[in-house]
Design a protein around this nucleic acid. Structure first.
Lengths: 339, 339
DNA sequence: TCGGCGTGTGTGCACGTGCACAGTTGTCGT
DNA sequence: ACGACAACTGTGCACGTGCACACACGCCGA
């Protein structure tokens, strides 16, 4: 006798109809809040529902409605970073809040290996979701292509890869990077470097572009150290290498707060004081920023807002409203003690 | 014309059957890998599936199979902590990996407000999931009661609340707390205090019990500072208050690494050196532990393993196997520089 | 008195699948 | 030559719901 089979049979609309002495149709109308249900019927059905413990069957409803009331939240990121990067968690929470308010469910899909890609593509094709929110997709993301082929309402956090004609929500990475680099330079730094992360994504490339723009003629290729991920360990290693190459460096723009925290660790190990010897600025204003010593000067990024707005974009498409194509959220510099 | 309606009609088993010149039944058998499908039929169906781009409809399958191939991952935690606590993310990843391997989906449900509780209870009752993994449920958790009423296969990370007859996976919080407190005391500390968090949960209460056990006759109520959450800010505030009350304190056991990190911040602000003036130990061995200065001595908790084992417990129940009632995962002390 | 209308109710069909069952072949042993 | 049996295929029903449609009733104006 399996645990599954001795689970109590779930009550259906038939059971309610029988208990209330009306027909299935009337129960259905009541449940969906339609008009043309008499007061006596209402009362009888209400009581019957409570008595038999009726809850509409989701699968049956999905089948007939051709809707699942579920939106996929796709994170295209190594597992380790999903845990480490507080931004992703905050984006997820923002999206979840907006979807919950609209009574939609969220299905979290974490894409790391190629096997995951196949699994997710199959899942999306199976009609299990009405739409999708995609975080940190890279160039020529196969999942993004599947989404486009299915014409599934979607919204990207960050610029969509390739020429995808999809909605997205962003902050001005380039302008913000330029602004904070200028501010760092204005503290009197002569040799300013950058630990540039995730250059295969727009966010990473734009932050580097803004950095270069700010320095203008002073920009020096040799002071840019590219690393793969927005992670603590990448920041530490990057800083170590950069310091070897340019020991006279007196300012660093790290592509994210996690990277900056790692960089500060490497600077400390190398015996440099922050901010006396080297000024450090980051990007994101995540939980990292307030817990480094000294606290980090950085660009505040409204992570929950990004998630919420992305969810809104999907919801609007679901309602058939003309898509607001892209949303730009404001970001601002937060100056603390690290520079 | 809504965006929804001009989405291409999805191919069904009928379309495949027509294109391959066979009947629905044969296609169904092929798709589900059943025997009794001729080689010629196989080839024709395979080609037809590729041609029309067929993917089985999830909702229809769920309806007829009375199974959704989905397991809920329920986090009963304030939103802020979901982002801050790396443990939850790691538990989630471990569970997700195990479920993915079994080709099951994961639905993340975050319960914070009472409104969330209702929403989640409704969702679970709707038959949308085959089972559930519950993280950090508190005493008399209404969601846990719903689960029990529905007889839904479930597994708790940590002890289930109340007298729920559910499976769970834990570490030995009490024994580990005792061991690390003894080790801390053995470094010659005379006045050892504790910042005790989340006493309304077994994990929190057990860690306090282990602490008291270790000190034995030396245990002093006045050196225990209770705080609500396993959070950085709670740790900082708790340490501040504890230090006011007991300035002669020379050792602290913090109930989690995040709490310990906050405590170290407060100690630094108060001008105490770690570990010279005050020895600090934590619990979890999360990302926090390796990034405090100095790095934290703590209890290593196999967070991903907890998630994976919880998923396994649910999977076993789903297969109708007799439930392994509880799993105890090993934990060990990691000694670094903070004590 | 009768047609029309607004209100309330019941019934059949469709959604796309899995599965039990009933056929239809062909082969092999007696 | 004929039944038994294996290999394969097609058809009807069920899963639980929403929706279109048909129908029943009371009331009002002509």
């Amino acid at each position: 006798m399996s645990t599954t089979s001795d689970r109590p049979r779930r009550a259906t609309v038939h059971d309610v109809a029988r208990a209330a002495g009306v027909s299935r149709g009337t129960v259905s109308r009541f449940v969906n809040g339609e008009p043309y249900v008499s007061a006596t019927a209402r009362a009888a059905i209400e009581e019957a529902i409570a008595k038999v413990g009726y809850v509409p069957n989701t699968a049956a409803r999905h089948l007939v409605m051709q809707r699942t009331e579920t939106v996929a939240f796709i994170v295209h990121e190594p597992h380790s970073l999903f845990v480490e990067d507080p931004n992703i968690g905050r984006i997820l929470l923002g999206a979840n809040a907006a979807l919950s308010d609209a009574d939609l469910q969220m299905a979290v899909l974490i894409v790391d290996t190629d096997r995951d890609t196949d699994r997710v593509a199959r899942y999306l094709s199976g009609g299990s979701v009405d739409g999708a929110i995609i975080v940190s997709a890279r160039a020529y993301d196969p999942v993004a292509r599947v989404l486009e082929r299915l014409r599934l309402p979607a919204a990207f956090v960050g610029h969509p890869p390739g020429a995808a004609s999809a909605a997205f929500v962003v902050i001005d990475n380039r302008g913000s990077a330029r602004a904070i680099t200028e501010r760092l330079a204005a503290t009197g730094r002569r040799r300013v470097g950058m630990i540039a992360a995730a250059l295969d994504r727009d966010s990473g490339a734009d932050r580097l572009a803004g950095f270069a723009e700010a320095l203008g003629a002073d920009y020096d290729d040799a002071l840019v150290e590219p690393v793969a991920l927005y992670s603590y360990s990448a920041g530490r290693e990057g800083m170590r290498r950069l310091l070897e190459r340019a020991p006279d460096l007196d300012g660093v723009f790290a592509a994210s707060d996690a990277v900056a925290a790692g960089a500060m660790d490497a600077l400390r190990t190398a015996g440099r004081r922050v901010p006396e010897d080297v000024g450090v600025v980051g990007f994101d204003d995540s939980a990292w920023a307030q817990r480094t010593v000294p606290p980090l000067s950085t660009v505040h990024q409204p992570a929950e807002g990004l998630g919420r707005e992305a969810a809104m974009l999907v919801l609007r498409q679901l309602r058939g409203e003309p898509a607001t194509r892209d949303v730009l959220l404001p970001s601002e510099i937060v100056w603390r003690g690290s520079a």
